[in-house]
Simulated scan of single mutants.
Amino acid sequence: MLEISDLKAGYGSVDILYGIDMRVAEGEIVAVLGSNGVGKTTLNNTISGLIRARAGSILFNGSEISHCSSAEIVGLGIAHVPEGRRVFPDLTVEENLEVGAYRRAGANKRRNIERMFQAFPRLKERRSQAAGTLSGGEQQMLAIARGLMSEPRLLILDEPSLGLSPVMVEEMFSLIRRINAEGLSIMLVEQNVVQSLEVASRTYVLEQGRFAISGSSQEVMANPELRRTYLGM
């Protein structure tokens, strides 16, 4: 579904990504792990068209998208839920969901809002409440639900567990499993190593703009370098 080859990107005169190769197959969860500042968000933003690739290729369903606008990429079926939730705080929960259908699946907006309320009962209880008054976990649910409103084929989640309580982290990863079980491909970009490896079929570990480790999640978990660097074992 998504195939990236020799991708290079950065900001101004600064290079951040130095030749990324990765793929996400239809129906799978792929994790991209890494600490702060190694290029995870730059990778997401380049795939989503928020910044331009300097070199390399990004294929989505066989079509090159590295020169597409972010709006065109959403229209093709990629939804990006950014780090930090970024809900519209002064809009209600329901209005935030409506925004998610602006570029794609607008004809199914009302149906999909009700689907989101079935999937996220807490949001239904707060449908008329300003999004800025929700808890952190509820805002993260809203951000994901807003992404799902466009009926994407690939969902990119950037640090969905960041800043959540342990209970909410468990709930978030359960939600990711449930969404994937319905057939949606997910690119999960996280610092939460253990739980990401548990839900993903394959994993890439990003270090300073390059993938230092990649393979099945079982292989990555068993890699002594990962265990030493990230798990302190």
Rank of each mutant, 00 (worst) to 15 (best):
L2W: 06
S66R: 15
L226G: 00
E171V: 11
L50D: 06
G132P: 10
F117R: 00
R104W: 09
L162P: 04
V74K: 02
P166A: 11
E64M: 04
L7Y: 03
V14Y: 11
E198G: 00
E171D: 15
H80W: 05
S69F: 11
K109C: 15
G39F: 03
R103F: 15
M187Y: 03
E170C: 03
A71R: 13
E190M: 10
A130C: 10
A145M: 04
R202S: 04
M1K: 10
E64H: 05
R228C: 01
N223Y: 03
E95I: 09
E198V: 09
E190K: 02
G106F: 14
S70G: 08
R228S: 12
A119E: 02
T92E: 05
R210A: 04
A53P: 07
Q208S: 14
L175Y: 08
S128I: 11
G84A: 11
Q208A: 13
Q191L: 12
L17A: 06
V205L: 06
K109M: 15
Q129K: 11
G132W: 10
Q139H: 11
V93C: 01
N45G: 03
D21M: 04
V193F: 07
R177G: 12
D15F: 00
A222R: 13
E138L: 08
E182K: 12
I47R: 06
L206R: 07
G19M: 07
T229Y: 08
E28M: 05
K124F: 15
I186T: 01
M116T: 10
E83Y: 07
H67A: 14
E171N: 13
M233L: 14
S13G: 13
S48T: 09
S70T: 14
L17C: 08
D6C: 12
E170F: 07
E159W: 12
M233T: 08
G147C: 09
K8S: 09
N192T: 07
M1A: 05
D15Q: 14
L155Q: 05
N61K: 14
T42A: 13
G215L: 02
M172T: 15
T41A: 12
A79Y: 01
L76P: 00
